[in-house]
Design a protein around this nucleic acid. Structure first.
Lengths: 127, 127
DNA sequence: TTGCAATATACTATTGACGGAATATTCTGC
DNA sequence: GCAGAATATTCCGTCAATAGTATATTGCAA
């Protein structure tokens, strides 16, 4: 993965928000859509673009596609996502997204809704 | 200056190389062109684009336009330029550029060629 | 004022990314 | 096999960024 590819991925707000959400663990598309409150087709296209850049990976689990950051983590990506978190005060949406995600994930834990097997305990949120 | 604007600037190799060169102090366009071995018009357009994003500033000194990173430095930019330096082994061009620049600047110091008054002693190179 | 050096702009064509709408694919459960 | 859920793809129009070529602007020096 190339510097330029990383920055090409980071230079769009929705992609930044997606990376921010994936930072704590894999997620299926439906969660991303719900947190971002975004159009399914748009998110799917962004994910395809990000995958082409090598910024995310995906695996299928039954009906669901699980997206994750590649292992081992790219240090440039990690550093920039940290910056996002540090600047949370100026850019509220990123922390709001994480809060919303944690609510969704706990709802799943509690009620066992129709959702894929995600290792939800890898999601530790700062807020 | 916005996160997205920063990344929009970073996602092009020539712009990255320009920022890398400006990191140690202001430079006139002719030095950038010489180090990058690039077309004058292209560099001028890139600088205009970067200026519109708020990533560089410029002042005229006689015939020369001096470009610099804005003060105070943007921490996101600083961090990413540091990463560039840390990954010098994988991305040789950035350290090569700095080496080439230091040669040009010392040539000016020694021979007093037709070049603008740049505070060359603010340029401390790692290599 | 003329000429030259340094830099910027205008014009045009091309490419890449994005949005919207419709449709296709893949898997599951019946 | 069929219906439905989750996700992806295709088609098309638009806009932003890039490149190439030509030309304009600015300032200095003679």
């Amino acid at each position: 993965m190339d510097f330029i590819d990383v920055y090409k991925c980071l230079c769009d707000k929705q992609r930044l928000r997606i990376l921010n959400l994936l930072k704590n663990g894999p997620l299926c598309v439906c969660h991303l859509i719900e947190v971002l409150d975004a159009d399914q087709v748009k998110v799917s296209k962004q994910l395809k673009y990000m995958k082409a850049l090598g910024m995310v990976e995906s695996t299928r689990e039954a009906n669901w596609m699980i997206y994750r950051l590649p292992e081992p983590p790219n240090s440039l990506v990690v550093e920039n996502l940290k910056c996002l978190q540090d600047c949370a005060d100026e850019h509220l949406c990123f922390s709001k997204d994480l809060k919303k995600l944690s609510q969704i994930l706990s709802r799943i834990d509690n009620q066992n809704l129709n959702c894929p097997e995600i290792v939800t305990n890898s999601h530790e949120f700062c807020c």
